[in-house]
C-alpha cells in the first residue's frame, strides 16, 4: 500500500527552519492497522498529511500502490483523495450548515455521483453507524460521539482503500472514545481497509496491532500483535 523512502518535511517559520520529518522509511501493507504515536510537535500529524496526499514532502518519495504521490500533479492528488483516501479529524470538521446526510454527501460530490444515489448511499452509511434516525440533524444538534460517527460515515461512504484518522477520539469522553474505537475496529475489519490512526493516547497505542512511534521526526515501528484486515478490493 504505502512505501515511504527518506521522507523529509521542512517548514520555514520566519528565519527558522523546522524539521518535521527527517528521512522516514516506512512500509504499510494493505489491510494494516497502524497507530502513530508521539509527543506533540513530533511530526505525527505531518506524517498523516503526507500519507493523506494533503501535503508533499520536501524530499523523499511516498509510493501509494506503486505510484509516487510526491510527484503527482495537484489535480491527480485531488482525485486520489476523492477516490481512495478517507480522513477523520479530531474536531470532526463537519460543515455546520449541512445536515448529517448532506455532510456525508460532500464526500460523494467530487466523484460525480448522482444526487439520488448520493442521498441513498449517505443514508445507508449513517444507518451503518447507528445514525439512521439522525439524517436530517445539523451537527450542532448532535453529541460529540454522534458527530464523529457522521465524520466516519463521510470518510467511508466512498469506500476508500485507506482510512486516516487524526486523533479521532481526542475530543471525546472515555466512554464515547471506546465506542468510537470499537466502531472503527469493526469497520476496519468489515471494509478490509488499511487503517492509520494518529494518537497521543497511550491506552490506544498499547492495543494497536502495529505501533509507529515518531519522535523528533523519526519513526520506529513495533509489531505488537500484527494482524491485517481481510482486504476486500
Amino acid at each position: 500500500m504505502y512505501k515511504l523512502s527518506g521522507v523529509t518535511k521542512q517548514y520555514s517559520r520566519g528565519k527558522e527552519t523546522v524539521h518535521a520529518l527527517r528521512g522516514i522509511d516506512l512500509v504499510i501493507e494493505d489491510g494494516d492497522q497502524v497507530v502513530i504515536q508521539g509527543p506533540t510537535g513530533g511530526g505525527k500529524s505531518t506524517l498523516l498529511q503526507m500519507l493523506g496526499a494533503l501535503d508533499r514532502p520536501t524530499a523523499g518519495s511516498i509510493e501509494f500502490d506503486g505510484v509516487d504521490i510526491a510527484k503527482l500533479s495537484e489535480t491527480k492528488l485531488t482525485r486520489l483523495r476523492a477516490e481512495k483516501i478517507g480522513i477523520i479529524f479530531q474536531s470532526f470538521n463537519l460543515i455546520p450548515t449541512l445536515t448529517a446526510q448532506e455532510n456525508v454527501e460532500t464526500a460523494l460530490a467530487p466523484m460525480g455521483t448522482k444526487p439520488a444515489e448520493r442521498r441513498r448511499l449517505a443514508a445507508e452509511a449513517l444507518e451503518s453507524v447507528g445514525l439512521g434516525e439522525r439524517l436530517h440533524h445539523l451537527p450542532g444538534e448532535l453529541s460529540g460521539g454522534q458527530q464523529q460517527r457522521v465524520a466516519i460515515s463521510r470518510a467511508l461512504v466512498k469506500k476508500p482503500k485507506v482510512l486516516l484518522a487524526d486523533e479521532p477520539t481526542g475530543a471525546l469522553d472515555e466512554g464515547t472514545r471506546d465506542e468510537i474505537l470499537a466502531l472503527l475496529d469493526g469497520l476496519w475489519k468489515e471494509y478490509g481497509l488499511t487503517f492509520i490512526m494518529v494518537t497521543h493516547d497511550s491506552h490506544i497505542a498499547k492495543s494497536a496491532p502495529r505501533l509507529a512511534t515518531i519522535k523528533a521526526g523519526q519513526v520506529t515501528i513495533t509489531d505488537q500483535a500484527r494482524q491485517t484486515a481481510p482486504v476486500s478490493y
Binding site: 494533503l54 483523495r81 476523492a82 480522513i87 460532500t106 460530490a109 463521510r154
Partner: peptide, 16 residues
C-alpha cells in the same frame, strides 16, 4: 478556512 480545507481534503477541486 477549516471548512474549505476539509472539503479539499475530501477531494473537492479548487474550482468547485
Amino acid at each position: 478556512v477549516r471548512e474549505f480545507g476539509t472539503l479539499k481534503a475530501l477531494g473537492w477541486k479548487s474550482g468547485r
